[in-house]
Design a protein around this nucleic acid. Structure first.
Lengths: 229, 229
DNA sequence: GAACAAATGTTAAGTATTGTACATTTGTAA
DNA sequence: TTACAAATGTACAATACTTAACATTTGTTC
C-alpha cells in the first residue's frame, strides 16, 4: 500500500523553502493517531490546514453501509483540509490513518497570519491545488475515454514514475483495484491482457516491467497521457 | 446548452471587488472567437489566465478520432488556464467557443504584477480552484458509488439549484448525457425511472420538477449530496 | 517442512451500459 | 397546413463489469 503514496502530487512541505517550512512546523499543533483511526470525517467544518508529519492515510468516503471508497493515499508532507481555509465548504472526505500517523494541525487563523509574512505560502498552496485539480480532471477523462486495460496501464505508469524502484511497483492487486475503482476480477483481466502484450509481469504483491521503454511507449501511444514536465 | 453554464463554481470576476475586477480588465487583452472555434488546445504552454468576457465555451478533450469529451461549460466571468500560472503543467484541455465569444487574456507576468498590489487576487483564485477540486472529487465519488439513476438526479439537482428558473431546467437529453458521460439510451432509462417515481417530468428540450420539495428531499436521502453552503 | 494466512487465478451467472437502428413526437419555417 | 428538422422513445444484441465462490500459488510462522 505504501507504494501508492504520493503518486499524484508533490508534498506541500517539500515545496516550501526550509525557512517557511520551519515556521509552519513551529506554529502547528501535533496530533497522533493509530492505525485505522479516523483523522477527519466528512462534513467536518473545523477550518484549518492539516499536514502529515509522519505515517500515511487514505482519503475517501464511507458509505452508509460502511464501505469505503478510496480516492487517494497521502504521505508525509502532504496536506488535506485546504478547502476549509478559503471556502465555506466543509471537509468533503473521510481520512483514515494507515499505521501510526502524526498530523500537524494549523488553524485557519494561524495560517492566515503566516500568509501575511510569507507570501510564498499562498502560492505554494495554489500550485498544489491546481496540480491536484489537473490530476482529477485527467482521471475523469480517463474514466470516460479509456478502456479499463488502458486505464490500468496508465495508473501503473504513474506509479512507476513516482514510486517505482527499478522497473517494478510494490502493490497488491486488491489495492490497485480499489484505487482505480473496479472489482478485483476486472483488474485481474486487464492485468492479464497487459501481460499477454508483454508489457508487464505479475508477481506476488508486485508488478514488474520487463521492458520499461516498451511499456512507456505503449502507454504514450494508447493512453492519452498528459505531457509530464 | 446555455443552462449548463456555471452550474459548478461561481465566476471569478464576480468574486473580486469591483476595483480589482476593473484592474484585471484594464490589464488584459481581448480576443474574439466565433462559434465552434478552438480557443485553446490541450498541451498549450502559453502561461496566462484566460477569463470569459462574453459568450461561453465548453472545456473538454478531443480524442484522436475527433470525438469530444466535454467536462464542463463555462460562461462569463469564469476562468481557465490557471494551471499555467503556478505550475509547469501545460493547458490540459481543449476549449471551444459556443457562439461568439470574447476572452480576456492576462499574461502570467501581468497577473503576477497585479498580485503584488492586490493580495485578494491570489486568495480568490485559490478559493475557486479549491471549489473546483471539491466539485471534481464529488463527481468522482458519485461515479464510483451511485447508480446512474441517482447520479442523474444529483446532476439535475445541481442544475436546478444554480441555473433553474421556477422548477425546471432547459437542457437537451443529449447534452445531459454528454455531461454525465453516458449514452443517451442509458440516460433516457434513468430519466424514465425518475419520472416513474414522480420526481421529474420530461419535456421537449427541458425537464421540470412537479414537486420540487419532494425532489430535493429524495436527492438528499439517496444521492449523498455534499452539504451546500 | 507443516500448517496457516495472504494474495492471486479462474469460473459462472447476473446486471448495467453501449451501439445501432428505427419509430414517434415536437417544433419551425416555408 | 405541409414539409422538414430536431429531439425524444424504444427495442435488441453485444459488451463490460460485478458479485460470489472456489482453486491455486506464495509467503510466513512455528
Amino acid at each position: 500500500m505504501r507504494d501508492l503514496l504520493q503518486f499524484n502530487t508533490r508534498p506541500f512541505m517539500d515545496m516550501l523553502t526550509p525557512a517557511i517550512a520551519d515556521r509552519v512546523r513551529a506554529e502547528a499543533t501535533i496530533s497522533s493517531f493509530s492505525n485505522g483511526q479516523l483523522i477527519q470525517s466528512r462534513g467536518d467544518t473545523r477550518a484549518g490546514l492539516s499536514i502529515i508529519k509522519s505515517g500515511a492515510g487514505q482519503m475517501g468516503v464511507f458509505g452508509e453501509d460502511g464501505t469505503f471508497v478510496m480516492m487517494s493515499v497521502l504521505g508525509p508532507g502532504q496536506t488535506f483540509g485546504e478547502v476549509t481555509l478559503f471556502t465555506d465548504i466543509p471537509r468533503t472526505q473521510d481520512f483514515v490513518a494507515i499505521g501510526p500517523t502524526e498530523i500537524y494541525q494549523l488553524s485557519a487563523a494561524r495560517f492566515r497570519a503566516l500568509c501575511e509574512d510569507e507570501s510564498g505560502l499562498l502560492e505554494t498552496l495554489l500550485s498544489i491545488t491546481l496540480a491536484r485539480s489537473h490530476f482529477l480532471l485527467d482521471i475523469l477523462d480517463s474514466i470516460r475515454r479509456l478502456p479499463l486495460r488502458e486505464r490500468v496501464a496508465k495508473t501503473l505508469y504513474s506509479m512507476e514514475l513516482t514510486a517505482g524502484q527499478h522497473g517494478h511497483v510494490q502493490c497488491r492487486q486488491e489495492d490497485l483495484a480499489d484505487m482505480i475503482g473496479v472489482s478485483r476480477v476486472s483488474l485481474s483481466k486487464a492485468l492479464k491482457d497487459l501481460t499477454a502484450l508483454g508489457l508487464i509481469k505479475l508477481g506476488y504483491g508486485s508488478i514488474s516491467f520487463p521492458d520499461i521503454e516498451k511499456f512507456r511507449d505503449w502507454v504514450g501511444r494508447h493512453c492519452n497521457v498528459a505531457i509530464v514536465s
